[in-house]
Amino acid sequence: MDSTNHSRFSSTNNYVATDDLMIAVNAAISLGRPLLIKGEPGTGKTQLAEEVAASLQANLIQWHIKSTTRAQQGLYEYDAVARLRDSQLGDDRVKDIANYIVPGKLWESFVSDARPVLLIDEIDKADIEFPNDLLLELDKMEFHVYETQKQIKAKHRPIIIITSNNEKELPDAFLRRCFFHYIQFPDKKVMEQIVDVHFPNLKKDLLESALSVFFDLRDAPGLKKKPSTSELLDWIKLLVTEDIPVDVLAADNPRSAIPPMHGALLKNEQDVHLFEKLVFLNRRNAR
């Protein structure tokens, strides 16, 4: 296993990793522990796994969790129905049960030849028991296949990145086995870097006014859904493609009641109304 030597994660061409995030990922890589990532929606939790894989030139295996996902599905599934059907058709395959064991994502990552990155996305969507069912597998990185009496053991401990949106609390025993990192919402300086990575040729003044509109918007009290990094990027993309002049964004522009293309930033009509009201009040107070 020489994979531990050259595995260091840092910012890539299209992802800005802060110091604390780098330390977190590198700690998880060198100790071979799963890394649990939380943070506001749209701060690049899922993208992190892609970037880690890209930066280490490793294979990325993605396991997206839904409310119906069970832990067993990540290990393997026994396709009893297919076997029953084959037996009725008199297929020869039916004699070997191994033909009907379908490997899951975890299995796939265990038998991978090079050290892979495994993304377990939105683990909080699953049932309360889901994380508990994976304790041993994540700890020892091996599991037993009951049907074939085989032990599957990881060739290389995969780099496991788990994301959660906090819809459910995760059990303590599970947390013990993970490292944890909370992605903070980027401040203005980091945000500039992020935008720069995505739109390298953006005009300085447009960036400046777009960011100030964006952070003002986030500070507005009572928004149901605060706009996040990904929404900011979408919005800037729109501004660029529509070629919106900078002065439209300026705060003292009487025509701009609310920012142009606000649909990219505010996702429900109550928020738009609320924001219109706030802008109106501000104007009146300013006079």
Binding site: D20, A27, L35, D172, L175, F179, H181
Partner: peptide
Amino acid sequence: YLARVILVKDE
């Protein structure tokens, strides 16, 4: 950063 990532389990 390292101590935080390892010792803290919840925001």
